[in-house]
Structure formats: structure tokens, C-alpha cells
Computed example of a mutant assay.
Amino acid sequence: MKLAILSRNGKLYSTRRLVEAARERGHSVRVLDPLRCYMRIASDGFAMHHQGRPLTGYHAVIPRIGASVTRYGTAVLRQFELMGTFTPNPSDSILKARDKLRCHQLLAAQGLGLPATVFGDNPDDTSDLLAMLGPTPHVIKLNEGTQGAGVMLTEKLSASRSVIEALRGLYANFLVQEFVAEAKGADLRCFVVGGKVVATMKRQAPKGDFRSNLHRGGTAKAVTATAAEEDTAIRAAKLLGLGVAGVDLIRSQRGPLILEVNASPGLEGIEAASGVDIAGSIIECVAIGGKKPTTHAGRGLLRQA
């Protein structure tokens, strides 16, 4: 099978592992920088080139699109979809996951647990907005931040107002959430592939911080998720249309609460903690999907593997 991986850096751990896993299983695989892909869109068909050469005949594409290139990267992925290429994470699903506000609205509408969240625009409404949320501490996070960047904890109401005023002055989009104290600075990353949780790790924030991200100095160890936690993670990924997802949960007195659904979850931390060949699971899942006929969106054509 001919596979493509959309990644800006072929030397990154996750990209390298996917390439290794694909080649170990006898697939042809190529890493493509999405910013070097460019496309032709016309009513008579779709075409795409990468560094001067046509991109044709790919059975499947695995997106590893960073937050900084979300808009262009998903446009490239959408072009692959329109050309009949299978992907486990469609472009629209990635966009849903990247927009934290939209993601939370979709999850809450289906009854999935998450920390109470408020969102508003006008400075005149800040006091009432925070009253809707409840007492401090509050967690304030940028709507499209990643790896713990742009996430702040405020312990006093005056601090919440000050941070909100500063972010509004920067024209930033942000959410304000309740702080779930019983989580004690820990969360779970459930890695979902093909509708199953293939590995789970517990991440613990370093002393003096509440963010458990490994990029922020957090530690990780393999754990066994409960049936409720696995069900929550699987439902969240399915709701967003993601075949591959890292679903971050916290354990609370009212059950598992979703913090975030990551459409391009890193492999290094969870493979090291769990010892599971997650890259191999992804490739096997993609290989199954890539063998199925794919409808050419808007044209009704079929691509046969």
C-alpha cells in the first residue's frame, strides 16, 4: 500500500515511528511537508504537487498537522480526500478538535462529562460571566493552545478578571473553566485507534504546577483505564470523527471529565510509558481503511485500492 504522512519534520519521533511501522509491514511510505504541497481545484478534477512533482496514487494519508499550520495543513488534507485518498482523521474532524470551544459544545451536547466552561466577548459581561462559572480557582486557556501553552490558573476573582482583560487586549480567544481540585494535578491520556483504547498513561504535573503535559515537565506511567474512562474516550473520538485521537481526561467525583481531544497526539511519551507499539496499531488501522473504496467527494467517483 502507498502511504503518505503529512509532517513538517520527518525527524520527529512520531513521524519516524510511523515510517518505521509502515515499512516493517511492507508498505511504501513518504513524508510530505504540507507547506510544500500545492493544489489545483477545478470542476473537472483535483490535482496536487509536492516540490514540483505530482502526488498521485496514494491509498491513505496520515495527518501529523501542527497547530501552527492547521489552516493550510487541513486544506492539503482535504485535497487528498477530494482526490479519493483515505485518512483516519478527516480535515473537518481535525478542525473540530482544534477549536476547543466547538469541541466542548459538541461533547457536552452528547452528555459527555467535562469541566464547566464559560465563554464571552464583551468586557462589560466579565463579572456575570465569572458568576455563571462559580468560585475560584479558575483555569483560563487559549482556545487553540497546545502542550499546556496558554493555560493559566487563577486563585482569586481579581486575578481572573485581570487575566481576562489582558487576553482581550491581545484579541485572543480563550475559555474559562472550573478547576477540579480532586484531580490533584493528574490526568489520563487515552490513546484511541480505530474505535479502541490501545494504551493509557497517567500524567502527573511537576511540583508547583497544575499542568501535567510532558512538555511542561510532567511525568507519565502506564495505567489501566476504567470501563467508564475508555467508553468516554471512545465516544469522544467517534463523535468528532477521529480514527486516531489522544483523549485527555481527569478523574473527578462525578466521573471522567474530558479536558481535550488531540487529533495529532504524540507517540513518544505514551509508547515509552506503556511499551505498546502504537505506531503499528495506527498503520494497521490505516491499512484496513485504505483498502476500502473511497467516494470522491462532490463527484461520486470511487478509488479502488
Rank of each mutant, 00 (worst) to 15 (best):
A220N: 04
G145A: 11
G289I: 00
D33P: 03
G280F: 02
S43L: 09
K96Y: 09
L170P: 05
D125W: 07
H50W: 15
G185I: 04
K141E: 08
L301Q: 13
S158G: 13
I278G: 10
G243N: 09
V223T: 03
T146H: 13
F179K: 01
S127Y: 09
L153H: 12
T154K: 13
G275A: 02
S7F: 11
A4D: 04
D248R: 06
G290N: 10
Y171D: 15
L175V: 04
A149N: 13
H27E: 03
I250S: 05
V176I: 14
K96E: 00
G120Q: 05
A220C: 06
P293T: 03
G10I: 12
C190K: 08
L188F: 12
G84A: 12
I234A: 02
L301W: 13
T232N: 09
A4H: 07
F86H: 12
I278C: 05
M48C: 11
D121K: 13
H27L: 02
R251L: 04
L35V: 06
H50M: 02
S127E: 15
L267S: 09
R25K: 11
V198Y: 14
S252L: 04
R211I: 11
M1I: 13
P135Q: 14
A186R: 14
S68Y: 14
I62A: 10
G195M: 01
G289V: 03
A21M: 05
L133F: 10
Q304H: 14
E155W: 13
F174W: 02
A109N: 09
H27M: 03
L6I: 08
T85L: 08
H50F: 13
T15Y: 11
V163P: 07
P54M: 08
L302V: 15
D125E: 15
V19H: 08
T154P: 05
A273V: 10
A4W: 14
T200G: 01
G269F: 09
T200H: 01
E182H: 10
I5F: 08
G266H: 01
A172G: 02
L142M: 05
G280R: 06
G246E: 11
L170Y: 12
P256A: 11
Q105N: 11
P34L: 10
D125L: 10
P54H: 00
G52Y: 00
A227Y: 04
K184C: 10
A199N: 14
I258D: 03
R30A: 08
G169A: 04
N122K: 11
L257D: 04
T70A: 14
K2N: 07
R36S: 12
C190A: 13
T74L: 05
G66Q: 05
L167E: 07
I164T: 12
E155D: 07
Q304Y: 15
A42F: 06
V193D: 08
M201A: 01
F80D: 06
T200N: 02
V29A: 00
G246I: 07
A305W: 13
E155Q: 13
Y171R: 15
Y58C: 07
T136A: 13
T219I: 05
R64F: 09
I41R: 10
P123L: 06
L188D: 00
T85A: 12
A22R: 12
R189T: 01
Q253P: 04
